[in-house]
Amino acid sequence: MDLPKYPFFTSETFLDFEFESNGPNGKIKKVVRYSPQNANGVTYFNLGFGDWNETIGKIDDSAISNNQDRERILATVAATVLEFTRRFPDAMVYATGSTPARTRLYQMAIAANCNEIELFLTVYGFADNNWHPFKKGVNYTAFLAMRK
């Protein structure tokens, strides 16, 4: 299923992505950041996603923009994952929400875009204290993805 997405921009390093959500609450700048990190000698990239707040000059993690375009936003974030891993085929991408509700949103994004995602990515979800290949309908607390 090819879900509608917003066009997005990326930085020269391809670690930062921006797009604009457009809806009843106006235009809201969304940012996706792939932060390089290392755990026990393994390099990976942490996916962070949030609303840019021009007034405070940083990401506002408490923002609930409610622009009635959730699916489009999630599809766009998924598209940045595909683009990022296309650029860096050996990169592992880790994602979890800052709250359980936001983690559920990531899960929904993967499930909704799985036809496209599964073509290119191997996705694992963390549940029951272990990593498992991603399956729809299972509640996970974190995700790891890598290019096939």
Binding site: S11, L15, S35, N38, A39, N46
Partner: peptide, 18 residues
């Protein structure tokens, strides 16, 4: 597109992931 690497939200998230 700016570098958001130093944004406190992303820094905190990356540390938690580690």
């Amino acid at each position: 597109v700016r570098d958001y690497g130093n944004d406190p939200f992303f820094v905190k998230k990356a540390e938690k992931s580690k």
